[in-house]
């Protein structure tokens, strides 16, 4: 079986200037009900890894530095 790579825009964005994942913070990753956020170890910031968002907002509300922003997924906007 061969696979294609489809590009999609994701609704959760992280301000790399504000994100303190490099200091050990994982709050947004921890609170996501769908477990779709992850830490990019090379950059030391959080990002949305899986396109499975419920736009529910705990990641944004609980982020201690205001780095996370939840948009409505494009298909629903």
């Amino acid at each position: 079986m061969t696979y294609a790579l489809n590009r999609v825009t994701v609704p959760v964005t992280v301000d790399e200037e504000k994100c303190i994942a490099a200091k050990g913070c994982t709050v947004c990753v921890d609170v996501c009900p769908l477990d779709i956020l992850a830490i990019d170890l090379a950059k030391g910031t959080a990002y949305m890894k899986f396109d499975e968002c419920w736009y529910c907002m705990p990641c944004e509300k609980d982020c201690p530095t205001g780095a996370v922003h939840v948009d409505i997924p494009y298909l629903l906007r």
């Binding site: 769908l34 499975e52 298909l75």
Partner: peptide, 13 residues
């Protein structure tokens, strides 16, 4: 109807 699998009424988890 949006076709977005996780855009459900219930928490999709």
């Amino acid at each position: 109807s949006s076709g977005y699998l996780f855009g459900t009424y219930e928490n999709p988890t």
